[in-house]
Every structure is written in C-alpha cells, then in structure tokens.
C-alpha cells in the first residue's frame, strides 16, 4: 500500500490511506454488520414478543392451563437468564461448533442465529416490562366488553406496550450493531473481522482500529437519529382538536414554520 501525504501528520495520513485503500473490505464489513444487526434485532423482537407476550398472560389458578403456564414460565425464565447471563462471544463459539455437525451452517447463518436468540432474551424482558407499563384499566375495559385475553393482548395491550418499549427496542438495535463485532470469533466477516485482517497485514493496529471505531460511531449515530425521528412520529398527536396538552406544541410548530 502507498501512504499518502494529505495533512502532513503521519498518523492521520496513515488513517486516511487505510480508509481510501481498504474501503471495499470495510464496506463489506459494514454490510455484514447491518445484515446481522437488522435481522438479529427483528428476529429477536419476534422471539421477545412471543415469549414476553405469553409470559404476561395470566391464567386462573386451578386449571390444567395453570400448570402448563407455570412450566412455561420456568422455561422462559431459564432462557432469559442463560442468554443474558453469559457472554455472547461464548454463546457464539459454543453454539456454532455444537450445532455445526447437525446443521452444517456457515458462520454468517450461525452468527444471525446467535445474535437473534441472544437479543430475544433481552427483548422478552423489554416486552414484558412494556406490557406491565400498560395501565391495567385498559385490560379491564377490554375484558368487560367481552374481548378474550388473546384479543385484548393483540389489539389493545401489545400495540401500547410496543410503543412504550420502543426506545428500549431501538437501543437493542444499536447494541447489536456494536456487539456483532464479537462474531469475529466464529469468522463472520463483519467490520471488526475485516479490520483485524487489515491491521494484521499492515501491522498498523492503532490507525486501523481508529478508522474502524469511527465507522462504528457513524453507524450508531445515524441509527440513533433515525430511531429518534421514528419515536417522535409515533408520539405525534393524530388529531386537530386542540386541548390544553396540544396547544403549546401546535402554536410552536405553526409559529415557527415557513
């Protein structure tokens, strides 16, 4: 690789040279990061909705369902404790090699699998807390109208729970962008893995990893801004009827606009 002289500062010039020369492999790493983080977060959210949603359903004592629910609760708790209580790096290595003979999977598939079930454990708790944050009066009102507990959960409680939990769900996504780096231990060619190879070939660790850190930072800043916009949209009032709680906001946007 040829080192450029752009700023005159040798350290910064090396960083820039790495960025310019190796951007294709860095970009490949970024793509893998996004693939793993996005699919891991979405699949994890689905796992969390199912596991957390079922955990929040209350079953009347004395029925056979109550026993099934009790067993389910214990299993769900074990799942959450195991995957939150052990490092994802250890989970990745163990699961990848343990299930490789059975599934014959590639590192990337194994990586998405690991990050999904790891995220699922966190999401289950996030969703459960989200459901608990919904006023019990909402459930009572729905049940008093004759809606079943499943209908109440799907139509009334979960939509509100997801909205309440959205900041935490978004946070999981950002965590996954960063934590996908541990998947380098099973040779997933994400950003950290690429950076390691570049640094190794050049023997320039400080410069390469500074560049890498900046790339991660750009990714997380963009992501959190997007999440922030979505969050604002979700909380925007969907009405034109002014009331004491809306007027101040309406006055501000109308007065400041154009």
């Amino acid at each position: 690789m040829k080192y450029l002289t752009i700023t005159g500062n040798q350290f910064i010039d090396t960083c820039l040279s790495i960025l310019i020369t190796f951007w294709p492999s860095l970009l490949l790493g970024v793509k893998t990061v996004l693939l793993v983080a996005i699919s891991g977060t979405i699949i994890g959210l689905v796992i969390g909705l199912i596991i957390g949603g079922l955990r929040a359903i209350k079953v009347e004592k004395g029925s056979i369902l109550y026993i099934i629910k009790w067993v389910y609760d214990v299993l769900a708790k074990c799942y959450v404790e195991i995957f939150r209580g052990t490092p994802m790096m250890v989970q990745a290595v163990f699961i990848y090699y343990w299930l490789k003979p059975a599934f014959g999977w590639t590192p990337i598939v194994a990586g998405i699998f690991v990050i999904s079930i790891n995220t699922g454990a966190y999401m289950a708790e996030i969703i459960r807390a989200g459901i608990q944050s919904v006023d019990v009066g909402q459930t009572e009102a729905a049940r008093s109208l004759g809606m079943t507990s499943i209908q109440t959960m799907m139509n009334i409680v979960l939509p509100q729970a997801i909205k309440n939990a959205f900041p935490a769900i978004g946070n999981e996504f950002i965590v996954n962008i960063k934590d996908s780096s541990v998947l380098n231990v099973i040779s997933v060619t994400e950003l950290f893995f690429q950076a390691k190879s570049i640094a190794g070939s050049l023997y320039k660790y400080e410069e390469t990893f500074l560049v890498t850190a900046v790339v991660y930072l750009v990714l997380t800043i963009i992501t959190s801004s997007i999440l922030h916009i979505i969050e604002k949209r979700m909380n925007a009032t969907k009405t034109s009827y002014p009331s004491s709680s809306t007027t101040s906001r309406m006055v501000k946007t109308q007065g400041g606009g154009k």
Binding site: Q138, E140, L145, T239
Partner: peptide, 26 residues
Amino acid sequence: RAKVGMVFQSFNLFSNLNVIDNCIIA
C-alpha cells in the same frame, strides 16, 4: 360480559385507538 357493560372511574378508553375505533373494536 358483552351483555353487561361497565363504565369505569378512570374512563379506560383504549389509548392506542381513536374515539370511533374505541366504539368499534369490541
């Protein structure tokens, strides 16, 4: 329960739905 209506002290309108959908969903 569908035949026995209940009106609560704290209203308990479904806050994820607008007025008409509150009346429609059940």
